[in-house]
Design a protein around this nucleic acid. Structure first.
Lengths: 199, 199
DNA sequence: CCTACCGATCGGTAGG
DNA sequence: CCTACCGATCGGTAGG
């Protein structure tokens, strides 16, 4: 293996990462249908058939972007395997982190709405994403209840559904208000009101 | 004025209404960018220049759809001028009604996300819509507090922000779950937990 | 309201 | 990775 070969592979990987970054921004700005492979390619300094060398179709590019984000954020979310109230706090911390990453908030806000159509290429992805988000959050609330820190009358299932819905709705408001909405603050107050201990 | 002339005007108004209905469905299915004037026109049995006779541009059609919905639903929401807890109940009733009108839920879910981009034709409309939604809901919470039925520690401003965000997030979940999410039920439980009286 | 057209842009492919 | 092209579709206009 020569230096040139290694540099060639590294260059390919770097270009792939650059495409994923620019595609994420573009899908967030314009949605899947509104995004243009030519514009994404231009921003990466290549032609659009050049982009299709790395990702054979527009749909494969979209799915690669979503999988890449899930891998990165999923790892961050579960680092140290937090449970119960700690896991709920981690969700609030994610909202605080996202307030520094408008592109990522746009991506999920716009695509989750677009993907409610049954024929959207990311429809199955988002159906599954919501199912597991609500499910894992319900587990956290159940763990909190078992430790006796959940207020009387709070149902883990309903609380999980509420928290996920609240996170999504706040993202829309945050984007429309130009970053004026305090996503993490509202979420923290919401969860605090459900607990018998300081959050 | 002859019978023919009166029929002609009535026919024009009826066609205009039909266009607004089909455009609402199409903007909900595909978003603004994804919607096609030719497809909307076909569904109304006319050509797309025929459609442009009633609405001179695609943007004017979108704004007409949004204004039409605001006029109809705004009237329903404020009928009898409900205040305080009654007004909050009216919002929950609207969610229950919307569970019977998937097209309207799609329209606002998809367009509000799309319109977070500053250059979207409905951007200003949705910025203003959220501002007034949160404001009028804050007034309702303040009225509830003045009547002594709001739980200690609930801030009208934060509660209003939460309720509007929750309504939006639940709509996304409802669409993705194929109508399985009980929007009105979750909202009712949320508001009930903020009050000292039965909701 | 129609037919016929404009220039622009799209995702993807051919061939190198 | 490139240039050059394909067929399809877009919003809007001309002219009637």
């Amino acid at each position: 293996m020569t230096g040139d070969e290694r540099r060639g592979y590294a260059k390919g990987r770097a270009k792939r990462e650059e495409i994923l970054d620019q595609a994420m921004a573009m899908f967030g700005e314009a949605g899947y249908r509104g995004a243009s492979l030519r514009v994404i390619a231009n921003r990466c300094g290549i032609s659009h058939p050049g982009l299709l060398h790395h990702f054979p179709t527009k749909e494969s590019l979209l799915l690669a972007v979503l999988e890449h984000r899930d891998a990165v954020d999923g790892e961050w979310l579960e680092a140290g395997r937090p449970t119960g109230v700690d896991r709920l706090r981690r969700l609030v911390d994610l909202a605080a982190l996202n307030a520094q990453r408008r592109g990522i908030v746009e991506l999920f806000c716009v695509l989750s709405a677009e993907a409610t159509s049954a024929d959207h290429p990311a429809h199955a992805y988002f159906v599954e994403r919501y199912r597991t988000s609500v499910l894992t959050t319900r587990v956290s609330y159940t763990e909190a209840r078992d430790k006796g820190v959940l207020r009387e009358g709070i149902t883990p299932g309903a609380a999980a559904q509420q928290l996920i819905a609240l996170m999504d709705g706040l993202q829309t408001q945050w984007l429309l208000s130009g970053g004026a909405t305090d996503m993490a603050g509202v979420l923290r107050a919401h969860v605090q009101a459900q607990l018998t201990v300081p959050f």
